[in-house]
Amino acid sequence: MGKKICLLEDDEGIREIIEMILTDEQYEVYGFSNVKDFMAFEDKASQDLYLLDVRLPDGDGFNVCQTLKDDDITKGIPVMMMSAHAGLHEMRRSCKAEDFIAKPFDIFDLLKKVDHQLTKGLNH
């Protein structure tokens, strides 16, 4: 497997599709449906990218993003936010994520943005 991507998405269908697409592209994907399980994940520091939904059943993806960016261990790892409700401007006000993708998203656009974040230099 290739680079590691941590996915936080509460919609099971969307999570499964993203996991399948990224796995087909040889990424190693760790999927979570809620903030509690994501935060309990022990291997956050070895990830190459975080892909976070904004609206979650037990929290807010912007807060998760900020927690990752405030932590010395994970602050250098790129974060991409996803939302059908929030927009790029709201993301820029709320957290320091590197990129944003609006839902519904085009699969090829998602892959392009993921690839860009993983290849734009040595992230950590």
Rank of each mutant, 00 (worst) to 15 (best):
D53T: 07
D53G: 12
D53Q: 03
V54T: 09
V54N: 10
R55P: 00
L56N: 04
P57L: 06
P57H: 07
D58Y: 00
G59I: 03
D60R: 12
D60T: 05
F62K: 02
F62Q: 03
F62V: 01
F62W: 15
N63F: 04
N63A: 14
N63P: 00
C65V: 06
C65T: 08
Q66G: 05
Q66E: 15
Q66A: 13
Q66C: 08
T67N: 09
T67S: 13
L68R: 09
K69N: 10
D70T: 11
D70R: 12
D71Q: 11
D71F: 06
D72S: 13
D72V: 13
I73H: 10
I73V: 14
I73M: 10
T74P: 07
K75G: 00
G76Y: 11
G76Q: 12
I77N: 02
P78R: 05
P78I: 09
P78Y: 09
V79H: 01
M80G: 01
M80S: 01
M82N: 01
M82S: 07
M82K: 00
M82E: 00
S83V: 07
S83R: 05
A84P: 02
A84D: 04
A84S: 14
H85N: 13
A86G: 03
G87K: 08
G87F: 03
G87M: 02
G87Q: 03
L88D: 09
H89G: 05
E90I: 02
M91H: 07
R92V: 02
R92W: 06
R92E: 15
R93F: 06
R93S: 14
R93P: 00
R93I: 04
R93T: 11
S94Y: 01
S94D: 08
S94K: 13
S94G: 11
C95M: 10
K96L: 14
K96S: 15
K96H: 14
A97F: 09
E98D: 14
D99W: 04
D99E: 15
F100H: 08
F100K: 10
F100P: 03
I101T: 01
A102I: 01
K103T: 03
P104G: 02
F105W: 03
F105H: 02
D106S: 10
D106M: 02
I107M: 06
F108G: 12
F108M: 12
F108C: 08
F108D: 15
F108W: 05
F108Q: 13
D109G: 01
L110M: 13
L111F: 01
K113P: 06
V114H: 09
D115F: 13
D115A: 14
D115Y: 14
D115E: 15
H116C: 04
H116M: 14
Q117I: 01
Q117V: 00
T119E: 13
T119A: 10
T119N: 15
K120T: 12
K120D: 12
K120N: 14
K120Q: 13
K120S: 13
